[in-house]
Design a protein around this nucleic acid. Sequence first.
DNA 1: GGTTGACCCCGCCCCGAGGTCAGGCCGGAG
DNA 2: CTCCGGCCTGACCTCGGGGCGGGGTCAACC
Lengths: 275, 275
Amino acid sequence: MAPSTGTTGGVTTSGGTIGGVTIGKAAAFAGVTVKTVRHYHRHGLLAEPPRDSSGYRRYGSADLLRLVQVRTLAAAGVPLAEVGPLLDADAERFAAALTDVERRLTERIAQLVARRDTLRQLADGDRLLLPDRALAILDRLSDLGFSDDYVAGQREALVLAKALAPELFDIFLAQLEHRLDDPEFADLTKRGWEARSWDPDDPRIEELASALADNLLAHRELLATPTGYRPGPDAATRYGLINHHLEDGESTAWTRLNALVEAELRAAGVPIPHQ
Amino acid sequence: MAPSTGTTGGVTTSGGTIGGVTIGKAAAFAGVTVKTVRHYHRHGLLAEPPRDSSGYRRYGSADLLRLVQVRTLAAAGVPLAEVGPLLDADAERFAAALTDVERRLTERIAQLVARRDTLRQLADGDRLLLPDRALAILDRLSDLGFSDDYVAGQREALVLAKALAPELFDIFLAQLEHRLDDPEFADLTKRGWEARSWDPDDPRIEELASALADNLLAHRELLATPTGYRPGPDAATRYGLINHHLEDGESTAWTRLNALVEAELRAAGVPIPHQ
DNA sequence: GGTTGACCCCGCCCCGAGGTCAGGCCGGAG
DNA sequence: CTCCGGCCTGACCTCGGGGCGGGGTCAACC
């Protein structure tokens, strides 16, 4: 540094007169906070400027220029880790890196838009958790006189089913839709739900189980899994979780009823996994 | 818990037989990682399920249901801190909160799109740092035979000017555009740039400074600040940073030339801030 | 010559939504 | 017996800074 300078100030020299602005002004000029400037220093994006006799940083025009460049790239969404190399690179790599950043940004935007669309569907109620078709079934259950408790339970079971066996979910819905067209099925199911409060040894349970199994078997085609369906290794676990949902020790009679129906179906050759 | 259950499994009971799936399966069913499930536990979004004799968590259907619900909301971009209250709230607050989340998401998307647009303009060169109009001026400088060094320096000065005095930037550009129409100005400026390598005491410097000042004063209307312009408190500092950029001890002759021109303009009544 | 308020120094901890690492226990298979 | 994979916990890392606290400095005002 030539000793003859130092009278003009405003540049990066650290001559006798102070020279340069403090961090606060530099930050204000660049439109960032003081913290941010120090952050850039720590991460090597900005060289540490000279200090004055009090230890204050003094920024010259070259420092400010660099700060403005860093801020501009950062504001454009370039990760800080890439800003340094980018500014030091030649025009070619600069352009290539920018294209890359832009691509990632586009991906992120698409992701957020997808999120928002998802979210929008959720605006009134369970639309996110269940598709319209399932919601229609739940409405139909209410119309058919099923209790709110039962409908709530079915709602939960459907959510679980959708999550645990999405590939079978549509078939599952189709089964439900057809069953509900049968008044006898609806009737038996209602009695089954009432059975929750029965004594576990109530003889009506076996009777009801038989009637339910017979009804189910009468439309045996609905019980078939699609040809070519290859159950995964966890099929039994999944089935157990879905089908025995709500058996949480709430009613032994209900558990027993389920077990009896399962046994009868199994005896008739319906492939129900043992969990 | 009634002792008679325990054979069905798949539910949240912690009876003698195991009951429930391990965290790995639960996570896989819900489509998240094991870490994520534990994360949810730590933040109270998910109650800790019972543990088996080895201390492993055992998830029942109710736990899975909750996990699926949490995951669904989280995937929709709901902050985790809001997921818990949301799932426990009634339908009305649920809907209101969702609308809010969606609004924030929309804001964020708009912000990112703006970023991307900014970024795109930057694709070839300095488009981000300088507007087209400024770039045209720089191109014109090259065409007029200014050296690459000079153009690069002017580019930096323009970036600084845009950042430090955006409200005057357009006027600054207009000045430059007009000055460049004057061949004498271009010529004098080129000589000024060459003066960097002169001896600081070279008598030609004073001569050149006078010629430059005369040329500038000949179009004095270009030197005026717009009526009503109220310089901020840092005006002098800003001016110093911009105008003395590149004086970094690089050339005393250049510094002296600048100082002389400034002095002559000031003597002629042009309001140049003392920095 | 105090005192006040603004500014600067540094360093530590905090956010969100988990990821990664390290060290160790548990269960089943070879 | 050892190996592998899954599970446990806790601690530290990410990214771009924000907030806070203790202490030094500067300029102005009383």
